[in-house]
Simulated assay, not measured.
Amino acid sequence: MPAPHPSARPAGRTPLPPPDRPRRLRDALAFYGVLAVLCACYLGWGLVAIGLSFVLPPRIGGPLGRRAIGTGFRFLLGLMERTGLVEFDLSELEPLRRARGLVVAPNHLSMIDVMLIVSHLPDAVCIMKAGLERNPAMGGGRLAGYIPNDAGLPVIRRAADALREGANLLVFPEGTRSPDGRVGPFHPGFALIARRARAPIQPVFIESNTRYLSKGWPIWRRPDFPLRYRARLGEAVTVAGPAEAFTENLHRQYTATLGEARP
């Protein structure tokens, strides 16, 4: 499959409306309630998972940890939606539920992006910031076999091995969250991984009407509501030619599809 070319924003795709609900006590109580549940889930499962990671072999602990995280994210997203704080349009992610050995590469608006994708992506391995695997609250990532980004070639090798074994890889080409909603520069590491594993890359375009949990936004700082998120899939591609040129070409597709609009 040839390298992707920039494409225009799909016809009829309207921008997400901004948060437009007056601040009210019910929203504040729901927000901090959901936040308490989320923190309890992360810390509770993290402590259990970090213990299991010392007991279970990776061939058992890895798939178990990944299933648990996917289930937990589906529960948390459903809870957010039931409170009326968030509206999701994620129907176009449904084909990911059948994915195997796929590199899934979304743009990175906020920490919620991980939840949106992993809730739909089976057996998802993530590349995470080095050091987080030692955080008790992130013990679930250690059990799941998430890969710390602490070294170049070993990371590429481990990620490619996971893909060959049938797991899916979630990686954000920007490497970090956007501070302003725009698509940042792409790093070619994800393309090197895909080429080494001979795996297709699945672009995912995430849009939102809020900067909540973007770079620099603390989790406890309350945004305006309702938050709205929409995700859709691009055409899956394989890496052709030099990784740097492929990455630049793919970046142009993201910026052309998502435009310069900011929440």
Rank of each mutant, 00 (worst) to 15 (best):
M1R: 13
R9P: 15
T14A: 15
P15E: 13
P19N: 04
P22E: 08
P22M: 03
R24I: 00
L25A: 14
F31C: 04
F31E: 03
G33E: 07
V34F: 00
L35A: 09
L35Q: 12
A36D: 02
V37M: 06
C41Q: 12
L43E: 09
L43D: 01
W45K: 00
W45V: 14
L47N: 04
V48Y: 04
V48Q: 01
A49M: 07
G51R: 14
V55T: 11
P57Y: 04
I60V: 15
R66N: 11
R66M: 10
I69C: 09
G70Q: 13
F73T: 10
R74C: 01
R74L: 06
L76I: 05
M80H: 05
E81C: 02
F88Y: 15
D89V: 07
L90I: 13
L90C: 08
E94N: 10
P95M: 13
R97W: 03
R97Q: 14
V103M: 07
P106C: 11
N107E: 12
H108Y: 07
H108G: 12
L116F: 13
V118G: 05
H120Q: 15
L121P: 12
D123M: 12
D123H: 11
D123T: 02
C126N: 09
G131P: 08
R134L: 12
R134M: 10
R134F: 10
N135S: 09
N135C: 08
N135P: 02
A137Q: 00
A137H: 00
A137S: 12
M138L: 06
M138Y: 13
M138V: 00
R142D: 06
R142I: 07
L143W: 11
A144E: 11
Y146H: 15
I147A: 04
I147K: 08
P148M: 10
D150L: 00
D150Q: 08
A151P: 03
P154A: 02
V155T: 15
V155R: 15
I156L: 15
I156A: 10
R164A: 14
A167I: 00
N168Y: 03
L169S: 11
L169C: 10
L170M: 06
P173E: 13
G175C: 08
T176W: 07
S178A: 10
P179F: 10
G184C: 05
H187R: 14
H187S: 08
G189E: 09
A194N: 01
A197Y: 05
R198E: 15
P200V: 13
F205L: 13
I206W: 05
E207G: 07
Y212G: 04
L213N: 06
S214W: 07
S214Y: 00
K215F: 04
I219G: 00
W220M: 10
R221N: 05
D224W: 12
F225V: 09
R228K: 11
R228N: 00
R230Y: 01
L233S: 07
L233E: 11
E235I: 06
T238N: 01
A240I: 07
A240N: 12
G241L: 08
A243M: 06
A245M: 05
A245Y: 00
F246C: 05
F246Y: 05
L250G: 08
R252F: 03
T255H: 02
T257C: 11
L258I: 10
E260V: 14
A261S: 14
